[in-house]
Design a protein around this nucleic acid. Structure first.
Lengths: 140, 140
DNA sequence: CTTGAGCCTGTACCAGCTACAGACCCTAGA
DNA sequence: TCTAGGGTCTGTAGCTGGTACAGGCTCAAG
């Protein structure tokens, strides 16, 4: 109860980082590239954040966890900020992203298949002959 | 049959690029970072390649297609160049890489699951309420 | 003899951060 | 009151795996 002469505790960059788990420098980076808004500054030029910044950063971090690129995040935020976003528009972006996620999975599965079946042929012994090396050397 | 007064046609950087499908600039990049050896130079300072360079570059490209990082490629090449590589050593590297591929697949599948089940709840309509946006806003 | 293609070099750029140097600023302890 | 330590500010460099371009040289064909 000692903050009645300290006004409401303001959030500085480090506080925002701790609250969200975001790296301190990343916050500034997001501001530079325009996905986080420029916050107001204190008299000593410190960035001052509030609840909406916390929510915004969490939104961004969740989108990143879902593999959205920062460009896609910008698009999502533009829709949300526009206020008039529609479910259809968002669904469009999400579906496009989903397609690219599925493409990556397919690529990796192909790689996984080749690698695992090749490694399975390895003797694992102390000999120079190795199916993995052979596969990499193979004449196409 | 007009090359008997031209000696054997030498491979220059562009030829190597065409033969392998590798980007011209990437060849120089691989040389800079030490995965391709510095080739001999012609009198006019042009790089001169031979069959072993072609094989080397193909090896690198196949390893990259299998998702090996350039660091891992360097390790593979060091083993091969050492001449005394053993199947066991190569298998070790390949298994480590396989594990990271599988980890990536698991990550992407988790993402795919979250995304697809969320998108499936979308009405797709011209309304502002959207399950995707809700998921991104969600208080953890 | 000119024009175009190829090669040479160094350097800048992309995503998506991360980290560091060199200034400030502020608070707590001696 | 001084000082040590933390925090913050700015700009900039580094990472991976390339890609691309400018400005200069060389070479062959027309």
């Amino acid at each position: 109860m000692n903050n009645h002469h300290r006004s409401v505790k303001v959030l500085r960059r480090g506080d925002l980082a701790k609250l969200t788990g975001c790296n301190l420098e990343t916050i500034r980076y997001y501001e530079n590239i325009g996905v986080m808004p420029e916050p107001p500054r204190s008299s000593k030029n410190y960035r001052v954040y509030d609840d909406r910044h916390v929510a915004r950063l969490r939104f961004i971090m969740r989108a990143r966890e879902l593999g959205f690129t920062l460009d896609e995040v910008r698009d999502l935020l533009a829709l949300v900020d526009g206020g008039a976003q529609t479910c259809g528009e968002v669904q469009g972006l999400a579906n496009a992203h989903l397609a690219s996620v599925r493409a990556k999975i397919a690529d990796l599965k192909r790689i996984e298949h080749v690698l695992s079946s090749t490694v399975a042929q390895c003797s694992g012994d102390d000999v120079p002959e190795c199916p993995v090396i052979d596969a990499l050397r193979e004449e196409a």
